[in-house]
Amino acid sequence: MREGAAKIRVRGLSKSFGPKVVLAGLDLDVAVGESVVVIGGSGTGKSVMLKCILGLLEPEAGSVQIDGEEVLGLPAAERERVNRKIGMLFQGSALFDSLKVWENVAFSLLQVSRMDRSAGKARALDTLARVGLGPEVGELWPAELSGGMQKRVALARAIASDPEIIFFDEPTTGLDPIMADVINEMIVKSVRTLGATTLSITHDLASARKIADRIAMLHQGRIIWSGPAREIDRSDNPYVDQFIHGRAEGPIKMEVRR
């Protein structure tokens, strides 16, 4: 790993909720322009990791550097400046239901860059076209859209301000396999056109194979394996093997009471 080129550098990230340790000293590097996908079972702390990096949760210990700048403990205004480099696609899309679709997509252009409304709308419709949605969708309300369309609108919102870094939280969860693949294609395409660095979390392996340059596996609060996406089938790691083959038996013990 080239040290100097890390866009996101996470060291020793720890977070517990009460007695439950979720992250136990997690280390992760994402190089400039690289697409890293973190896989892991439900409840292994993937979302918590993402929220800690984004500054939505306060970790107990560790360091998060973005472009070599330590972002943990930054004051709110400074944090906003860093967040301008970042786009995020939420698992549940998290569209603002009090705003129309185009206002959602143009949100940061209107509210942060203070673009005037007609220019913002034009940009929003352009961005919607990039995710395969026509201008008529822009006038709808988020509640009127299907899950797959909401995901695409959320993707449009995440890329509208041309971020340098994009986070994807379970981008394909809850979608049918075809729509999931459409979303994956769009992620790959938009990331390529933007040249953005991305960090995704998912438990959908098809999605991981499609969008990742590198895959990392999270287990018990640490990254236990990491390697190029094409090598995941030859990892020689019993945890990774169990996960990608979806076996109930193996070194990963699900906490199920029988």
């Binding site: 939505l56 709110a76 967040n83 998290a94 603002f96 239901d97 949100f107 940061s108 509210q111 942060v112």
Partner: peptide
């Protein structure tokens, strides 16, 4: 109800990631 729903559906977190202070907004 509105702000609560925004909280539980991650819309408040989305504001933060869009560099908007949820308090101010």
């Amino acid at each position: 109800a509105e702000i609560g729903t925004m909280r539980v559906t991650d819309q408040i977190d989305a504001l933060v990631t869009l560099s908007t202070n949820p308090f101010k907004y």
